[in-house]
Amino acid sequence: MTTPSTTRAAGYNFAYLDEQTKRSIRRTILKAMAVPGYQAPFGSREMPLPYGWGTGGIQATAAIIGPDDVLKVIDQGADDTTNAVSIRRFFALTAGVRTTERTPEASIIQTRHRIPETKLAAGQIVVLQVPMPEPMRRLEPRETETRKMHALAEYGLMHVKLYEDIAHLGKISTAYDYPVKVNGRYVMAPSPIPKFDNPKLDMSPALQIFAAGREKRIYCLPPYTEVKSLDFDDHPFEIEQWDKACALCGATDSFLDEVIADDAGTRVYVCSDSDHCAERRAAGHIGATPDALAETP
């Protein structure tokens, strides 16, 4: 449902940040778009939400949002998780824009850890919240060294990690924040989205902005950029599978959350993308146990 714009709180500039700061962030976004996958540094500000809780995404959204925009905010794929609620309230308060839960109606979607199941359209912008922008950070803690590796396209270390996984576990063991090669040049961390969502990054009609507030980096995937998940020819990239359908709407091709439904430990699987699930149910798709998550009286 789309809520109408509200009068924003007095005493704040539109979307909280001053215009100079917004301009400087937009310049960084443009730079990042010009070199897809490259981490552009920016002067991140302290925001009223803590570092680590989406300040990068909030600054990126604040820099690009206008009074005519329609904003959707999700966390773990759902609109009603506490932090998504908190961020949506922040923009309602400081920008007074229309907000929505419907993916196709949003012009800007700020998200943490998921990409919507619904295919995005040209003209939409996705802002992803990033905790650690550097894909090689766990292998090489020094920023000076990783910066050099990116500049010289020295990515052997990334494949060494994948090799080790296969040698010890038989398969690549990265489940989320799965590294990708962008436009044939930069290796990028797509933020902790499950690898299930990686294919959505490739050739998307939408603009995808990745913002890390605490680490002070922005990187972008302009529309229709080629994005390939790292793998080996004989161990190709594969996404998660479930042998179950969503209990509420019956979907078999969406990312499912595993919910512990009662004290006995009964598991119920439901779509992580709450809007996608609601749309399917509204269209008449009913799952096996549509009342599984109803509150017990």
Binding site: P50, P131, Y176, R214, L256
Partner: peptide, 29 residues
Amino acid sequence: NVEASGFVQHLKLPHYVDFQSELVLVRAL
């Protein structure tokens, strides 16, 4: 400490989608 506090405490935010990914992997292994 503003950065440190934010990031340490951000672990309280829901991480269940990533955890779900790991559950799937661990079960497969």
